[in-house]
Write a protein that binds this DNA or RNA. Structure first.
Lengths: 153, 153
DNA sequence: TCAAATGATGATACTCCATATCACTAGAAG
DNA sequence: CTTCTAGTGATATGGAGTATCATCATTTGA
């Protein structure tokens, strides 16, 4: 198997988009922007908040049978626009959704990370690359303590 | 608009998966692994090699009408397994394919980059994060000289 | 408290990307 | 040249996400 494939499929990925924030009240964030606090939205948000892994839209839909498919996708889209949820494109074409944190691309588990070390790094990487650096995104590929990959050891 | 969304949609992204390599002969790489050097594969490889941007499978299919859709997807999958082509999941759900280089997530243009500076960076970022670092992937988000985004200036 | 206005919902149909199937074609080896 | 079989192309199929639209429910103003 190819190392490049393994790296994106079987390791922790720790992501940082310049900002790190743990949202306190996602529903309030919606209301602040003129949206309504409906029962389906509360259910979806609560499910996302208690999840310790990235979720597919399908998984949310299955766990919340009272909420329609379309509403799941609409609510996710809304939360993405507000910025409290991130969308992780997986290599198999699916997408995981979760609070803005770190997600393992294999098992979907979320991990905490040290913002400080990650913040220092991209400035060094920017140097020597054409164009004007504006933002950065780092993925650290690591063996996962709970989901270790054995293919290439 | 949210900064997180802008960053992945409207800027250069410079990627590195630990290794940087410019394959010299992609067909030979296939043959070495027991695959055949067929006309459709040669056409797809030649098209990828002369492209200066990431390509969707659909774009390849349109430009090579003599090659069937299924073969385009099969050949891409094969080149991914060999490791000479990379798959870039875009935030809109589509995928771009290209030689292992850097690709702008908006216009699809490929850019060269300095491997040295990028290689030094992740080692610093690894420190302080739980788990065992094995590989890394960096995306530098930058204003693109040819495809500059004006939304958030 | 009530009623109008409209944002939100859910069922369904639909679109698009990618894969599976399968009879047929064409490289590769002797 | 012939045989073997990997590879191909047309088509059907599957799955994720979106669009539509009649209905529902939250908000707001009286």
């Amino acid at each position: 198997m190819n190392k490049q494939d393994i790296s994106v499929n079987n390791r922790y990925v720790v992501s940082l988009n310049g900002l790190v924030y743990q949202p306190t009240n996602l529903i309030a964030a919606l209301v602040e922007r003129g949206h309504r606090a409906t029962a389906p939205r509360k259910a979806i948000v609560a499910f996302l908040e208690q999840a310790n892994e990235g979720l597919t839209a399908e998984a949310i839909n299955e766990k919340l049978p009272s909420v329609g498919r379309a509403t799941v996708y609409r609510t996710i889209k809304l939360l993405l626009e507000v910025g409290v949820v991130c969308k992780i494109p997986m290599m198999d074409g699916s997408h995981l959704y979760g609070l803005t944190r770190s997600v393992c691309l294999l098992c979907g588990a979320m991990v905490e990370f040290k913002a400080g070390t990650l913040n220092r790094s991209p400035r060094a990487a920017d140097a020597g690359t054409p164009g004007q650096p504006v933002d950065h995104h780092i993925e650290l590929t690591m063996t996962c303590d709970y989901c270790r990959a054995d293919e290439d050891k």
